[in-house]
């Protein structure tokens, strides 16, 4: 009897401790969102008024109006979707293909090359950006254009800067933004799938590629959703590459937001409103995918 009481009290104490810990930590996670909402709805007087802490005296949407105008919202949204987000979605597909090659087949140089995948996760992108910049300005992979010019005697010059190709091309070859992480996640998942899946397909006369498309892809929705969410968030937020490679009307929302952030003439509320406008689309998509995503996180074995 006594033992039972003791057990019950310990479990209650543990659950209280857990909630205290989670709420205090959750507060840290939610706090900035809270401040952003509160500041973006305040007028300038409220900001300066010491008695106003979080709840503004007069609600105003002027900050949002200014922010949308300054962000050049529709144009920037269009280029965000067309350039970073599209390349993110391309990566979801191409990284799966690469990862499948690493997960299921045996060839001599496999381990060295996979080590290279891990190494790319660790290379700071700042190191690559300048050489990539000059490379895109005079796009000449493996001197193909130079050779072409020599043969034809022409003077062809391909400048990919300020076009979507600066992000699409690396994504197509699965070496885009954080693709190393995606290849790693996919590979671990594919290794966990039973081999009988493909063997059955091979018996039915499939080759490795049709087996991948018809058997592996349909049974990997969980991994695909996980990678999609990560890819979407990272590409939406991407700022350094897009800031360097894209100009004027091609600038995505993240770069426009950075410009607003640096504008000292603007009120703080405008910056907060801009930040809110920026994160709301991703937040909404995340909340929609959330249940599926959390479930999929449960299932994607990062451990092999």
């Amino acid at each position: 009897m006594n033992k039972k009481v003791l057990k019950r009290t310990t479990s209650i104490v543990i659950s209280i401790a857990r909630w205290v810990f989670l709420i205090s930590v959750g507060y840290i996670a939610l706090y900035p969102l809270f401040v952003m909402v509160s500041n973006s709805l305040m007028t300038m007087e409220d900001v300066l008024d010491q008695s106003v802490v979080y709840i503004p005296k007069t609600l105003t949407l002027d900050n949002f109006k200014t922010a949308i105008e300054k962000l050049n919202f529709l144009t920037a949204l269009k280029s965000t979707l067309l350039i970073p987000v599209l390349s993110g979605m391309i990566e979801v597909a191409t990284c799966a293909i690469t990862a499948y090659g690493f997960a299921r087949f045996n060839f001599k140089e496999k381990n060295i090359l996979f080590g290279l995948v891990i190494a790319t996760i660790a290379v700071p992108s700042t190191l690559l950006m300048i050489p990539q910049y000059t490379g895109f300005y005079n796009f000449d992979p493996l001197k193909a254009v130079t050779i072409f010019n020599k043969i034809t005697g022409g003077n062809a010059h391909i400048n990919l800067l300020n076009t979507g190709f600066t992000m699409w091309l690396p994504a197509i070859f699965s070496v885009g933004l954080r693709s190393g992480v995606f290849i790693f996640i996919y590979r671990q998942f594919f290794k966990g799938l039973p081999k009988e899946f493909e063997e059955a397909a091979y018996v039915d006369g499939a080759n490795p590629f049709t087996a991948f498309l018809r058997v592996i892809v349909p049974s990997s929705t969980v991994a695909i959703i996980t990678v999609t969410v990560f890819s979407l968030v990272w590409h939406w937020n991407e700022y350094y590459i897009t800031n360097m490679f894209l100009l004027e009307d091609n600038r995505p929302l993240s770069v426009m937001l950075k410009i607003i952030a640096g504008d000292t003439k603007l009120a703080n509320g405008v910056r907060m409103a801009g930040a809110l406008i920026f994160i709301i689309p991703v937040l909404v998509i995340y909340l929609i995918l959330q249940r599926k995503f959390i479930k999929s996180i449960d299932k994607v074995g990062i451990v092999g």
């Binding site: 690469t98 090659g101 690493f102 087949f105 091309l169 690396p170 070859f173 699965s174 490795p208």
Partner: peptide, 15 residues
């Protein structure tokens, strides 16, 4: 296997 990772190898060299 080599065919599956071929695009990655090309991209790795160029980019």
């Amino acid at each position: 296997g080599r065919l599956f990772i071929l695009p990655w190898e090309i991209g790795m060299v160029i980019f």
